[in-house]
């Protein structure tokens, strides 16, 4: 089977779907919910269990930063809308 030959002329579907944005979206939603839990829904007992750290606040904030990194990456180096031989190997 000539595996990749027949598709060189095909429009890259990837332009419609960037996994980095999906990851950013999920991490952002998780981040917001967990951060809010950390600010309003974490009891002193919870904080004591984790040795004085409010895990929710830190994790939520960390998730939001990670989400931002993915969003910026996707923004700076978008998936090439390639329908030709412009196969940029450098990015997604």
């Amino acid at each position: 089977m000539n595996a990749s030959d027949h598709r060189s002329g095909r429009k890259s579907w990837a332009s419609a779907f960037d996994i980095r944005l999906v990851i950013a979206a999920l991490l952002a939603v998780f981040g917001v919910i967990i951060l809010l839990m950390g600010l309003f829904g974490t009891s002193q007992a919870d904080i004591d269990r984790a040795g004085g750290t409010n895990l929710n606040t830190w994790t939520g904030a960390g998730l939001l930063v990670a989400a931002a990194v993915f969003a910026v990456w996707a923004r700076l180096r978008p998936v090439p809308v390639a329908d030709d031989d412009a196969n940029h190997d450098d990015v997604v």
Partner: peptide
């Protein structure tokens, strides 16, 4: 079980 509070637990 011992360290993680609700919220983070879902994650």
């Amino acid at each position: 079980r011992d360290l993680v509070p609700n919220g983070m637990l879902g994650l």
